[in-house]
Design a protein around this nucleic acid. Structure first.
Lengths: 114, 114
DNA sequence: TCATATATTTAAGTAACTTATATATTGCAA
DNA sequence: TTGCAATATATAAGTTACTTAAATATATGA
């Protein structure tokens, strides 16, 4: 498992990117998808996920549709137009972040920045 | 610039990895090296850096040597034996983290995990 | 009958940061 | 010679994105 400190700041971006890739999803589905994609390395707790979803809905980034499945409520979330542009920006930022981290953990010895 | 939320949890690992690569360094030097390696994307503020260094010293991960240069105090930090193994573990974790993030932002459509 | 999986919600607590402030020297430009 | 930028370290106060924990409810297989 990866320490929660490391993962913390990236949860919102992860949720948004999954919604972009998969269209509408419900909360429980999102947690399982994250585990699947990261081979169990990243786990989204419900205490983190649902507040994130509610906040993004309040901000107009997501919209919900509640449906009934097997007598259980499912709240499906999907991106608004605003959400689409928010995702694009967040993903761009994350790619820059990944690149920066790679420059740290895999420094190129030949490349002298002096 | 990358949002501070994203960067937050990785600062300690970044500091430790730089010390591993460069041997002993002083605080101010570390902040500049991070900016250089990340093309200005990641900035280590002093309010973050010095508490991190002090804490790592208290934990026996780092040791200090204070020297005088141009009438300014420089506190050089370097890894202890314990520090070396801490870095190894932290870097391993960060590589897993990067890999997980890449699986999110660059999903492989052909690869079906169902 | 009981544990596990499914499904959502929210309150309370933690800690890694940011922001701001303090202090002091060197060196360059106007 | 005045004043700003760069160099160098330190720490107190505040923020916030999380974690942990507790609550609620149904379906399903052993």
């Amino acid at each position: 498992m990866i320490s929660t400190d490391l993962i913390k700041g990236s949860l919102k971006t992860i949720v948004l990117k999954l919604l972009k890739e998969n269209g509408r999803m419900y909360g429980y589905e999102i947690t399982r998808k994250v585990e699947e994609l990261t081979a169990g390395q990243i786990k989204l707790t419900y205490g983190a996920l649902y507040p994130i979803l509610h906040k993004l809905e309040n901000e107009g980034v997501l919209v919900t549709e509640s449906e009934n499945y097997n007598n259980r409520i499912r709240v499906y979330y999907s991106l608004t137009d605003k959400g689409e542009s928010v995702v694009a920006e967040k993903v761009r930022e994350m790619k820059e972040f990944i690149e920066s981290l790679q420059n740290i953990v895999n420094p190129q010895p030949g490349l002298n920045h002096a």
